[in-house]
Design a protein around this nucleic acid. Structure first.
Lengths: 119, 119
DNA sequence: TGCCTATATTCGCATAGGCATATATGAAGT
DNA sequence: ACTTCATATATGCCTATGCGAATATAGGCA
């Protein structure tokens, strides 16, 4: 079901990073998994929009899912290559370049605490 | 002329990396500057296509130009942030994920030697 | 004029965003 | 067990936009 048989191409992965919303999602997932409703609440975006971007990220092999009853928890996929690892390091750096990300992290902390929201 | 007043947004920079041709160009520029005709020859792509992608990369602040008579030499812009630095490290990693890049580097060496082509 | 490089035009594709709706799971009531 | 309802998530349809590619053309310089 969640199998990602073919390794996505490098430019596909870059494209996954090349969107503000997806960047914010990836950043929010750094501390740990979140479910869609959490992301919707923290980002303040319509649910279908988030869902679509999550599907895109999953297709690029950047996130994985864990189903738990009604909720689907998304988390960053473990880096399986040096390239993937470096890219995640880029993500950490973005924190300082995109002020939005810091605000998101703050909102996440307020809304979800250090742990996941749906726990 | 070549001033890059406003720092391009992070997702803009990622978008610059999110194209196979631009990835190949950036990779070819890693050892040092090249002029457009060199890139055209090594990549085997039409000159307008290369020119357009170079303009894109310049707009994203990833390459700089040096004009020398007829030729315009392109080179990687020096990293001005940790983010930029990490991204260039990603580029080095791509080498192993995109077989095309290794072939390009080989063709570049044959066509231009270790130095620049137009010297 | 002839060479190197950049841009304009046109077409087509990928995809972002919004809306409505479908699917899936769980809970409550009968 | 069946039905109904609520919640969580995904998907279809639509429109708008951003590019990528190819061709033709323009500018700059010897």
């Amino acid at each position: 079901m969640k199998s990602t048989v073919a390794k996505p191409s490098v430019d596909r992965v870059f494209r996954a990073f090349a969107d503000r919303t997806r960047l914010r999602i990836l950043n929010l997932l750094r501390p740990g998994e979140l479910c869609v409703c959490d992301l919707v609440r923290v980002l303040g975006s319509p649910q279908p929009k988030i869902s679509r971007h999550l599907a895109y990220l999953r297709g690029a092999g950047l996130v994985t899912t864990r189903k738990d009853g009604l909720w689907i928890h998304y988390s960053l996929a473990p880096a399986n290559s040096r390239f993937h690892q470096k890219l995640l390091e880029c993500l950490s750096c973005c924190f300082t370049d995109v002020p939005e990300l810091a605000k998101d992290a703050k909102r996440r902390a307020e809304s979800c605490g250090t742990r996941n929201c749906c726990d």
